[in-house]
């Protein structure tokens, strides 16, 4: 996280990405690496296996930035990514977790 306070952070517009991926040890670094190499901060990450465990779902909370459409295309290009869906920042997946992140 950067020096921006939590409230200020909330004020920035955000997006939530829902990414279906193959479940193996390298997949997180593939996805997250696309953001880190562009100095594009990822504010929140969640990942759990789905179904029989061969697939996982990664949820990312990211800042809305003019680069976001390009980021999504880059993520979609990854071999292990089968789908990317974009949601509004108020998606329950992160808001429901607030209780675990009280300072």
């Amino acid at each position: 996280m950067n020096a921006v306070s939590r409230n200020e952070n909330q004020a920035l517009s955000r997006a939530v990405l829902e990414i279906d991926v193959a479940n193996h040890p390298g997949v997180m670094s593939h996805v997250v690496g696309l953001f880190s190499r562009r100095a594009y901060n990822v504010e929140g990450i969640l990942c759990l296996p789905v179904g029989d465990g061969r697939q996982s779902r990664i949820w990312l909370l990211v800042n809305e930035d003019q680069r976001l459409p390009q980021m999504i295309r880059q993520v979609e290009k990854l071999e292990d990514v089968s789908a990317v869906r974009r949601h509004h920042a108020d998606h329950a997946v992160f808001t429901d977790l607030e209780a675990f992140f009280q300072a």
Binding site: P25, G26, S29, H30, G33, L78, E79
Partner: peptide, 14 residues
Amino acid sequence: TYGLSVPITKHNFL
């Protein structure tokens, strides 16, 4: 090698 090659390959396998 896997980690080093993530950003410079189209895809990689361990």
